[in-house]
C-alpha cells in the first residue's frame, strides 16, 4: 500500500499549486472556474484508486467525516462514505430517522453537538434550502452541501461536469439540454451555474409550471418543447420527476408528462449522433426516460455514479488539505 500511496504524498501536494478558497462547499454559484478545474483534475487523478485491488490510500487517515442526512438518499450518502473510506477517513453516518432530530432537536443544536466531538468534515443533506449555510456559518468544520432543498447539489454538478469532460474532452461550447422539473431541482441549479461558467450553451426545458420565474437571467435558454430543447444537443440531462407532485397544479398526470417530456428512441434522434444521456438518478423508467434510452449506448448514467466517488474523494481531499 505504501507504493500506491506515493501519488498522494507531499510530492504530489507540491504540484498542487492552489487550494480551494473556502472552507466549505455549499454551492457552485460562488465557485470560481479555476477551482472547478482543480476539483475535476484532482478527481481524475483519484479515479484510478477505485480500480485497484486494494482501494485505499492513507491520505485522510485520522480524519473524521460525518454524513448528516435529513433526507433519504442511497446513492449520494453511499458515494460520500465510499469516497471517505477510500481515503482512510473514519466515517459516521447519521440519518434523520436514527438521530435525535425525531425528538425535536434543532438543526443548530445537532450541529453544535457534532462539533463538540471534533469531526473534520460534515456532509449535510436537508430538505430545506440554506441548511448547509447555517452549519457553515456556525461551525469551524468544513461543510459539504449534499443537497439543500431545491437550492444546490454541488457534488452532483461536479460529477456531471467530470463525466461530460471525460466524454467530450471539454465542456466549453457544448450544447447541453436539462429537461424536467427545473423549478424544484437543485441538480439543475448547480449544473446551470457550473456548465455556464465552463462555457457551455445550456438549454432548460420542462412544463411551464415547472419553470421558475426569470430563469433566463441565469444565462440559459428556455424551452417548453422537448424537441426544440434537445435539437443538436451534445448532452441531454434528464431530471427525475417527483411523482408526488402530480395533481398539485404542477402537472396533470404522469401520462401527459411522459408523452411530452420523456427522452425516447424517437426524439433522441434530434440530438447529435454522439449525444450523451445523463440522469442524476434515481430514474423513473418510463416516465422521464424510457428503459431503452436509460440502458442504451448513449447513456452514461452509471459512469456518473462512478465519477461521483472520484469527485467526492477530490473534494474531501482538497477541503482537508487546504486547511492545514
Amino acid at each position: 500500500m505504501g507504493a500506491q500511496a506515493g501519488l498522494f504524498t507531499s510530492g504530489w501536494r507540491l504540484r498542487n499549486t492552489m487550494d480551494l478558497s473556502k472552507k466549505d462547499m455549499l454551492g457552485i454559484i460562488d465557485l470560481p472556474k479555476d477551482e472547478i478545474d482543480l476539483i475535476l483534475d484532482t478527481a481524475e487523478s483519484f479515479k484510478e484508486i477505485s480500480t485497484r485491488t486494494i482501494k485505499k490510500v492513507p491520505t485522510l487517515r485520522g480524519k473524521t467525516v460525518i454524513t448528516l442526512f435529513f433526507e433519504a438518499s442511497t446513492r449520494t450518502r453511499t458515494s460520500f462514505e465510499i469516497a471517505a473510506k477510500r481515503l482512510s477517513a473514519d466515517t459516521i453516518n447519521i440519518s434523520a430517522s436514527t438521530s435525535s432530530v425525531v425528538k425535536g432537536e434543532t438543526l443548530i443544536d445537532t450541529a453544535r453537538n457534532l462539533e463538540s466531538m471534533n469531526p473534520d468534515i460534515i456532509i449535510i443533506r436537508h430538505s430545506a434550502a440554506g441548511a448547509a449555510h447555517i452549519l457553515a456559518g456556525l461551525l469551524k468544520q468544513s461543510i459539504i452541501n449534499a443537497g439543500d432543498g431545491a437550492h444546490e447539489h454541488p457534488t452532483q454538478a461536479l460529477l456531471d461536469m467530470l463525466t461530460i469532460r471525460e466524454k467530450k474532452g471539454t465542456i466549453e461550447g457544448l450544447r447541453i439540454a436539462i429537461v424536467g422539473d427545473i423549478a424544484h431541482s437543485r441538480v439543475a441549479r448547480s449544473n446551470i451555474y457550473g456548465l455556464t461558467k465552463m462555457g457551455a450553451d445550456v438549454a432548460v426545458c420542462g412544463p411551464a409550471m415547472m419553470m421558475p420565474r426569470d430563469i433566463d437571467q441565469m444565462g440559459v435558454s428556455v424551452y417548453y418543447k422537448m424537441e426544440d430543447a434537445i435539437k443538436d444537443a451534445d448532452v441531454v440531462m434528464m431530471l427525475r420527476i417527483q411523482l408526488e407532485r402530480q395533481g398539485k397544479n404542477l402537472f396533470p398526470s404522469l401520462r401527459e408528462y411522459a408523452n411530452l417530456f420523456s427522452l425516447n428512441r424517437d426524439n433522441i434522434r434530434l440530438a447529435k449522433d454522439d449525444v450523451i444521456v445523463m440522469h442524476p438518478g434515481p430514474i423513473n423508467r418510463g416516465v422521464e426516460i424510457t428503459p431503452e434510452i436509460a440502458d442504451g449506448p448513449h447513456s452514461v448514467i452509471l459512469e456518473q455514479v462512478t465519477n461521483g466517488v472520484a469527485v467526492r474523494m477530490a473534494l474531501l481531499y482538497l477541503l482537508s488539505g487546504g486547511r492545514k
Binding site: 432543498g149 431545491a150 423549478a183 420565474r213 426569470d214 441565469m218
Partner: peptide, 15 residues
C-alpha cells in the same frame, strides 16, 4: 418574493 433571486435560491416564491 418570487423572481430571479427565489429562482437562484430554490425557495418557493410569493409573487
Amino acid at each position: 418574493n418570487e423572481g430571479f433571486i427565489s429562482t437562484q435560491l430554490g425557495l418557493p416564491g410569493i409573487p
